[in-house]
């Protein structure tokens, strides 16, 4: 408990140091572009591939499990859409990204800490947290929602692909009808909003664990594991809270 409070305190202090006005905007934007590019180049394909497959599998599973003639076939498309839009493309996708991007950030910053690169910045009078962490947080908050939109599209496409496989009488036209059935565009905004929060969680927590590494290369590895575990827990927690606040 004591340790948890101490960590919370350290985290808050680091965020205060991070979220300040950059010394040089030109340098800040350069870093921001770099971060977005890195994230985009690294994660776009994995997001697309995972989304297509999961979309396909969700549609197949549902259609396999709904065999009762009382339930109309368009339910399959409807349910697939709801799962992808509400939970999969935001929450689950961000859990996956927490593993990939979070460990990346933690080990990058952690390595800079143990090789004294952060000290070198501080000694020049540069606010290292602001320079290193702020562009990461903002970059993720800008680009993760874009990835989420990609994931929604490709996930639905995966579902449509499955509908051509003719499992248990599922047809493309019934699937399509289900996709449009009772469509509430608020859900898309809601999902994107969630992903912005998750992006902040991933970037800030991973940075915190990296920034506070003490020791050597081994500790960098530990920090990146801890970062992934902690940000995953926080994403799930935030998911529960936001679902409660916005949908009930």
């Amino acid at each position: 408990m004591n340790e948890a409070l101490q960590r919370l305190g350290e985290y808050t202090l680091l965020m205060r140091k991070t979220l300040s006005i950059p010394t040089r905007w030109s340098m800040f934007f350069k870093q921001l572009i770099k971060e977005i590019y890195k994230l985009g180049a690294d994660s776009l394909w994995i997001v697309i591939i995972i989304s297509i497959f999961i979309g396909t599998v969700i549609a197949m599973q549902i259609s396999l499990n709904i065999s009762s003639p009382l339930i109309p076939k368009f339910t399959i498309g409807y349910t697939t859409r709801e799962i992808i839009l509400l939970e999969f493309s935001s929450s689950i996708m961000c859990l996956i990204l927490a593993g990939k991007v979070g460990s990346n950030i933690a080990s990058e910053i952690g390595t800079m800490r143990v090789t004294e690169q952060i000290d070198a910045m501080e000694i020049m009078g540069v606010n290292s947290a602001n320079f290193l962490i702020f562009p990461k947080i903002l970059g993720l908050m800008i680009f993760i929602p874009v990835l989420v939109i990609f994931s929604m599209f490709t996930g639905i496409l995966g579902g449509i692909a499955a509908s051509y496989a003719d499992i248990n009488g599922m047809t493309p036209s019934s699937f399509e009808y289900g996709l449009q059935y009772y469509f509430n565009s608020f859900y898309i905004g809601y999902s994107i909003l969630k992903s912005v929060v998750y992006a902040f969680i991933i970037a800030s927590i991973a940075s915190y664990f990296g920034y506070n590494v003490k020791g050597g290369a081994l500790d960098v590895g530990k920090a990146s594991t801890n970062a992934v575990v902690m940000s995953s827990i926080m994403i799930l927690l935030a998911d529960v809270i936001m679902t409660h606040l916005m949908l009930t």
Binding site: R24, M27, T115, Q117, D119, A120, I123, V126
Partner: peptide, 29 residues
């Protein structure tokens, strides 16, 4: 701080930047 220069035990060059960018970093800032 701007009047101080430091050479670290492990050099502490920023490994995401080229040598020139490293030297330019304090100037850019």
């Amino acid at each position: 701080r701007r009047e101080m220069g430091m050479l670290f035990q492990g050099s502490a060059l920023f490994d995401s930047m080229t040598v020139l960018e490293n030297v330019m970093f304090p100037l850019d800032m």
